[in-house]
Amino acid sequence: MSSKVRLILDGFVKNNPTFVLLLGMCPTLATTTSAVNGLSMGLATLFVLVLSNMAISAIAPVVPDKVHIPVYIVVIATFVTLLQLLMQAYTPAVYETLGLFIPLIVVNCIVLGRAEAFASRNGVIASAADGIGVGLGFTLALTVLGAVREILGSGSIFGWKFIPGDGMLAFVMAPGAFICLGYLMVLFNKYLKKE
């Protein structure tokens, strides 16, 4: 059991998809205009990641080697479509905000990367644990980036406004995304990454 816990914890720091592996940059930059948006995007990716990891680890032994990438992509696309339909039904407002980046989870390199590097050669339970770990690591990174941009850009956090005034608008817009992520990576490199 402890090895499963280890797998989950690894996803947070050692294999953090955003700060260490540099995967899934597009949704990371595009959807983190606020902490809530970052959190929802992270959770959406977590959902697809866990389910596709489990499904792929289950079917991997019978998939011919030559067509494994197309098969994995179809499996992932199926879960993404499922997520799209669920979100349209139950959380239409969130779906509207995240927009294009929900269907684009299909081409998020984190999902296909984990399928290829982990799920295809491990058991279902271990793959689920790996999916949870990496998914939570991604969610954490997105929420932190969203929170920083929300504080600097609009003076609030999770929608709670504690600095009066407009804030620095540039941080909510495109340039702020790149600059904040750059500086967060610097902090991560300096204090958390072990050689």
Partner: peptide, 15 residues
């Protein structure tokens, strides 16, 4: 990191 900061400045120019 430095690449990202550079892109940020580039994005600001495009704004």
């Amino acid at each position: 990191p430095i690449a990202l900061v550079t892109v940020g400045i580039l994005a600001m120019a495009f704004m």
